[in-house]
Simulated scan of single mutants.
Amino acid sequence: MKTKILLGIIALIAVFSLTGCSKDSSTSDSAFTSDDVKASNKMDQASNDVSEIVEDQYLQQNPSAAGKTTASYVSILPSCATVTTEVTATTWTRTIVFANGGCTMPNGNVLEGSIIVSGSLNFNTPSYVINYQFVNFRHNNILIEGNKTITRTFTNSALLATNHPIHVMDINMTFTFPNGDVYTRVGTRKRECIDGFTSPMNWHDNVYLITQNITTTKPNGATHTNTVTDASPLRIEMNCQYRIVSGILTITKPNHTAVLDYGTGTCDNNATISIDGGTPTAFTFGN
């Protein structure tokens, strides 16, 4: 998902910050600034790319999980990324090295360093755990650290009655921005592939529904929570240039709430934001 928040939403969130801020504000209720909005968006992009890369490497190792064969599966990785595979009697490990100076993904994001993805050769387990870790990994020049897991199941859910791939991403990451600001994120993010996962060649027709509950700690120690529920999941359509076509994201800090509504399914970059229950205001995102 590539959702670069533009000036309209930045200005709105800046207003949202000022209405609940004074010089006596405590760290736990400090202002949610336009810089935080941009930082949150960049971290969302990174989490999305990592999730897609981890799934891609799993399917490279086990293409039958998507009804494909090794010969027919097309990786999402560009040619500037190299992959080394090691297989033992019980495990597999795939190390992805992105070219020095940056390797541009199909969505335009630039990656550097390495991601190590690994798992068991017992692919028949109902809940398959995929490990991922970062080695000097940067996403658009943001250093990302943390070693966690994605649990993959193939089952039904409240969002789709028929069996489909479901990834639950355990998030505990540290993001160091080029200016030295350090953010941490802890929580879970669930991504359900509801369409396109059995197509014979690639991932361009995939459709995902995403729910999440993630707490972000800012450089000054203040926190806010990003929540997406089953009632209005974010819908990602890979054949839409804007990726996200519908869903509601709620951003909560101790005394204020912002609700971002991405619409009802049209492939466009139009959305609205409502602050503290106020009248929704239009904004645009993405490119």
Rank of each mutant, 00 (worst) to 15 (best):
Q57C: 09
K68S: 10
D24N: 13
Y58W: 13
S25D: 11
S40W: 12
E52Y: 11
Y58K: 12
S64Y: 11
Q45H: 15
T70I: 15
T69C: 08
N48Q: 05
S25V: 00
S34Q: 10
S51P: 01
N48R: 06
K23D: 15
Q61R: 06
S34H: 12
K23C: 07
L59R: 08
A46H: 02
A66S: 07
T69Q: 11
E55I: 11
D29F: 06
K38N: 10
K23S: 11
Y58V: 14
K42V: 00
Q57E: 15
D29W: 03
T70P: 00
A31P: 00
N62Y: 12
Y58R: 14
A71V: 11
S40E: 08
P63F: 12
K68F: 05
A39N: 15
S25M: 05
D56S: 08
K38W: 02
D36P: 07
S26G: 14
T27G: 00
L59M: 13
S51N: 06
K38A: 10
F32Y: 08
A46G: 03
D24Y: 09
D56T: 06
V54T: 05
Q45N: 14
T33S: 13
A65K: 15
D56Q: 08
A65V: 07
A66K: 01
K23N: 10
N62R: 14
D44T: 03
D36S: 04
Q61E: 14
T70C: 09
S25N: 09
P63H: 13
D44Y: 04
A31V: 00
N62P: 05
S30D: 12
F32Q: 01
A71G: 10
T70Y: 10
D44H: 02
Q60C: 01
E55L: 12
A66Q: 03
D24F: 06
S40F: 03
V50L: 15
D49S: 14
A31I: 07
F32I: 07
M43Q: 06
D56I: 03
Y58L: 15
Q60I: 03
E55S: 08
F32N: 00
S64W: 03
K23I: 04
F32E: 01
Q57L: 12
Q57M: 14
N48M: 07
D49T: 08
Q60H: 13
S30F: 02
M43T: 04
T27D: 07
K23T: 15
V37M: 04
Y58P: 01
I53F: 06
S64R: 05
T70H: 08
V50R: 13
V54G: 03
G67Q: 02
K68Q: 13
D29C: 11
A31S: 15
V37P: 02
S34E: 12
V54P: 01
D35W: 05
K38H: 04
D44Q: 07
D44M: 03
S64Q: 09
K68V: 02
D44I: 05
T27Q: 13
D24M: 11
T69P: 05
K68D: 08
S64K: 08
S40H: 06
A66H: 05
T27C: 08
Q60Y: 02
N62Q: 07
A39H: 14
S47F: 12
D29T: 08
F32C: 00
K38Y: 14
S34R: 09
S25F: 02
A39P: 05
T27Y: 03
S51C: 02
N62T: 11
E52G: 01
E55H: 09
A46S: 10
D44C: 01
T33Y: 10
D36W: 04
M43R: 13
N62S: 15
S51R: 01
A39Q: 13
T27K: 11
